[in-house]
């Protein structure tokens, strides 16, 4: 069995948003819709104030609430655990948005591009991949995965903060990294069994995995 997972090293992330741009470039998501985000938070007060960065994306849960909530079966879990949207059967109930505790899916309702009503050639080409009124979300760049290439966000990260691999393979780089580092999974208590691991704490040597 294969279960694709994702690790995010919170010590390494510098908040450059390169993953966000890479995701946008790769998938051409419409205006206001971000499959990958780096959330910022200000902590403390001067002179000890700091900003922390937390990359978030679809966690491709093993027990995905979006799949259970969808009345049409538009949310499908692939054999490798990646959760994808079949836009041809989505009717836009937004039940997936409501059910997802990570606030990940979005509904594309058409509309303007980044530079006004007239779409650029790039936007026209990319937006044509999306059906109006249907849900969309990160699909783990599965076309790239199927070609043996890393997801666009992983490839773009200059700090090697993002990693991915097969969680069911004990020898996979992501599992080696997880054995060496302290980690947690987002909102595990909700029973979603997410496939994303956040690495925390110093140490562990150089990053292992695809870079």
């Amino acid at each position: 069995m294969t279960r694709m997972g994702f690790s995010i090293d919170l010590e390494r992330c510098v908040g450059c948003q390169a993953c966000v741009i890479a995701c946008k470039t790769e998938n051409g998501t419409p205006r206001n819709i971000h499959w990958m985000r780096v959330l910022e938070k200000e902590e403390g007060a001067f002179p000890d104030a700091r900003r922390s960065f937390t990359p978030v994306r679809c966690n491709h849960c093993a027990n995905p609430p979006c799949v259970a909530a969808c009345p049409t079966g538009a949310f499908v879990q692939r054999a490798d655990g990646v959760v994808v949207v079949n836009e041809s059967v989505c009717v836009g109930t937004m039940a997936c948005l409501t059910a997802c505790p990570y606030y990940v899916p979005a509904r594309y309702d058409g509309g303007d591009g980044y530079f006004g009503k007239k779409l650029t050639m790039y936007e026209e080409a990319k937006y044509s991949n999306f059906r109006e009124g249907t849900a969309q979300k990160c699909h783990f760049c599965y076309p790239r995965l199927d070609e043996g290439r890393p997801p666009a966000c992983v490839e773009a990260c200059p700090a090697d903060a993002l990693n991915y691999g097969d969680l069911d393979d004990p020898e996979s780089p992501i599992n080696i990294e997880l054995q060496r580092r302290r980690h947690f999974r987002p909102r595990e208590e909700l029973g979603t069994d997410p496939s994303t691991y956040y690495l925390v704490g110093k140490g562990g040597g150089p990053a292992v995995g695809v870079s």
């Binding site: 819709i33 985000r37 959330l39 937390t54 948005l97 979005a106 309702d109 058409g110």
Partner: peptide, 14 residues
């Protein structure tokens, strides 16, 4: 004519 995504995908952890 509805517009854009139906979410508020902000970049703040809140």
């Amino acid at each position: 004519r509805r517009n854009h995504g139906n979410v508020d995908h902000g970049f703040q952890l809140d």
